[in-house]
């Protein structure tokens, strides 16, 4: 797999991939840790951007330029996911008041579940 070209471009792509990887890791951290659900959606959106970065670099490295179509499609679909989740958060906010969206205390929900025998 060692297709990286020689010279300056070679070095720069390696560095770029390394930093993209770190960014990817940080985004995954935020996605998993994110206190509120909105954080996680932001992380997902960031994930798409980093994906496009990867694709771009790989297009340059392998000079296989058809990859950027994958990038464009990813940008589009990433936007769709963000819109879908944003609307989900918005809809949830309008339902009868229950606490924060994330998994803080759900006491009454757990009791209800246990009353029903908690089997299903």
């Amino acid at each position: 797999m060692d297709v990286l070209g020689s010279s300056f471009l070679d070095i720069s792509t390696r560095i770029a991939l390394a930093s993209l990887l770190v960014a990817f890791a940080l985004t995954v951290y935020r996605l998993v840790r994110g206190p509120s659900f909105a954080d996680r959606v932001v992380a997902l959106d960031m994930l798409m951007l980093i994906g496009i970065g990867f694709i771009g670099v790989m297009a340059v490295v392998t000079s296989e330029y058809n990859y950027i179509d994958v990038g464009i499609a990813l940008a589009l679909v990433g936007f769709l996911a963000t819109v879908a989740f944003a609307r989900y958060i918005y809809r949830r906010a309008h339902l009868p008041k229950d606490d924060q969206l994330d998994e803080v205390a759900h006491a009454e929900e757990r009791e209800q579940y246990r009353e029903q025998g908690g089997r299903s």
Binding site: V22, R30, A43
Partner: peptide
């Protein structure tokens, strides 16, 4: 190639900054 290399480096740098910011 030089221009591409530089652009990639800057791009990657900004992605990294975004990651750190997110973190």
């Amino acid at each position: 190639e030089i221009i591409a290399g530089v652009l990639i480096l800057i791009g990657a740098f900004f992605s990294l900054v975004a990651g750190i910011g997110l973190f």
